[in-house]
Write a protein that binds this DNA or RNA. Structure first.
Lengths: 345, 345
DNA sequence: TAGAGCCTGGACAACGTTGTCAGATGCGAG
DNA sequence: CTCGCATCTGACAACGTTGTCCAGGCTCTA
């Protein structure tokens, strides 16, 4: 049991290769290759000898060399904003499952909402020669991807459209979802409604704001500037924004929260206040039904977003897709109480 | 603007190579390599010509070939149970950040708690020649990894120890955390306390059960068999288990939930019942503080777990680590109300 | 001005695998 | 007994990159 002897004699590079296996089994290089890949044309006896040599040496095929030779890597890249965000977990998992079904591995990275970092990541993935890319864009100019796409890297954008290039996109209906959510608040008697969202350069944030404005306009309610607050979705800023809207001479009676992170902070702020405030949030959150009152949300199906995107990716690779398309998935309003509170005096 | 012409003339493999760049720039192959890698020994004028050729052709270095030549891939693998589980998001992100700081990419996969799938994934990653592996083990026999570790693949296990091999492990103190959590319930007057956990073959589940038993024994409380329920953590089974414990002739007055998934289901069951039931859960959950009552939890720091593991991984790769070690991170009891309810009659 | 030494650039092999193709072996038929 | 064919096996090149090594041109000094 000398397992502790790790990397002593063997610094690196002395892994057995097919040549070693061939030598040990007393066969040719190609025969080993045939056995490893399950190709026909090897007598059972030879195969057994090769297999024994493989086991004895602990040989494992070097996929780098294989990729170099064959062209395809059987891996796809996923670039998203933050793996730790509960919205992206299911999305990521869904992409992974589709990849797995196609025998591909998933390489992923977080852009941290930084366009430069996104580009750096994407290009690193291209250098690895991933077969395809699923990108949740942070930046708004993706012309840097043009040569890659031309060279055959399948590409699908998710959650937000690509900038400056024509590519497959899978989105949720942010505009419609937000409009419906705000209309729901209006239907319950609210007229002074606040909107707190992500940075305006993020497409979904802009769309949801547009949905908010549309709902207000449809109802003939003029929107006051200080009812809207866009920016980073860290707790500090959101808290400040919410408290500002809820205070002053003519405070809002309801808030529409632009995404899951905003929603949780707004829930906290509202919970601290005496006067009830209606709330509808974009994105479902766990345990939303158990809060008092339950949080009404506009839910999007993150897993479905990921599945759809990955499906399209592999269909691009199959060659069964030709033209880029824009797919918009519907959202669903889930009423739980917080959106149905009447406006307080 | 003919961006729609994707993969027409170019099926694959006709990406420009260094040879193409060299030809176009009118220089030698190695000179291109030098420019691409920022190596010294190229006159500014030559460098400019090469750079122009690179841009004109849209050349991108093929990392597969590079890896084959150099030996190291600058990528590490992460195998966990389910990317969609909120516990693993931050862990995964933390590993990614450390990898990024070392210039490495992260390839990850979900084992879905299936030992075969775990092995399949790990070996696929080894075939890719990842430099290192962070594994949250699903199985309990990892001897299949021995040849890989010997060959130089740095390996760190997280959250649960490796089976049958001697390797670095980073854990949370499941035993101590559970014992403290249960002791907390006992301190608030409970004697009939239930335990609902994950499948017993999972190390953390077994350890937490052991912590539960220890706390009960320390208090001199004999444990009845039907106070303990271990199995899959899907809502159906957990719900059934909770309802069973809470009904009958002598129901439990408090429940210790073995992980985040169990906790949310138990919270739901408890919310439906008239009689209050005390609850302490392992793992913190979002919004736990806003529920009525707030959910008392034994929190572990998932991000710290990931960071610690990744750090050790790269220190193995540096060669600054020699002997496998077992690191146990402390847990933290966060009291919020649900654990402080007195036993109901 | 010649020689030494430095700097730049390029030819070539090697990494480990797979595809091509040709050689070897064994068997049955004429 | 020999030929032909089918079956199995192996030699070799190629994938795209980087490390080694050498050649040629330059500068600097004596």
């Amino acid at each position: 049991m000398a397992e502790t002897a790790r990397r002593t004699e063997s610094r690196y590079g002395n892994r057995p290769t097919m040549k070693d296996v061939a030598a040990r089994a007393g066969v040719g290089l190609k025969t080993v290759s045939r056995v490893v890949n399950g190709e026909p044309g090897v007598t059972p006896d030879t195969e057994r000898r090769v297999q024994e040599a493989i086991d004895a040496l602990g040989f494992r095929r070097n996929d780098s060399a294989r990729v170099l030779r064959k062209g395809r890597t059987a891996s796809i890249g996923l670039v998203l904003e933050d793996l730790a965000d509960p919205f992206y977990g299911p999305l990521s998992r869904a992409v992974e499952e589709v990849a797995r079904a196609h025998g591909a591995l998933l390489i992923n990275g977080s852009s941290a909402e930084d366009p430069d970092r996104e580009q750096e990541l994407v290009l690193a993935l291209c250098a690895r020669r991933v077969d395809g890319l699923v990108v949740i864009p942070a930046g708004d100019d993706h012309r840097y991807l043009e040569p890659e796409i031309k060279a055959g890297v399948a590409t699908v954008f998710v959650d937000r459209p690509a900038g400056q290039i024509d590519a497959d996109v899978v989105l949720s209906d942010s505009f419609g979802g937000a409009r419906d959510g705000v209309a729901h608040l209006i239907a319950h008697g609210h007229r002074r409604i606040g909107f707190i969202g992500d940075m305006p350069r993020i497409h979904t944030a802009a769309e949801r704001l547009r949905g908010y404005r549309a709902a207000m306009e449809d109802a003939g309610i003029p929107v006051e500037p200080d009812w809207m607050s866009l920016g980073v979705t860290g707790p500090e800023r959101v808290r400040l924004a919410a408290e500002t809207m809820l205070s002053g001479s003519s405070p809002v009676t309801a808030v529409f929260a632009g995404n899951n992170r905003v929603t949780v902070t707004v829930v906290r702020v509202i919970a601290e206040r005496a006067r009830p405030v209606a709330l509808v949030g974009f994105d479902d959150i766990e345990l939303a039904d158990l809060l008092q009152p339950g949080v009404t949300v506009v839910a999007q199906d993150a897993a479905q977003l990921g599945r759809t995107a990955a499906d399209r990716l592999f269909r691009q690779l199959d060659g069964s897709l030709v033209l880029p398309e824009r797919i918009e998935l519907p959202t669903r309003l889930i009423t739980r109480g917080s959106g149905e509170l009447p406006p307080a005096a």
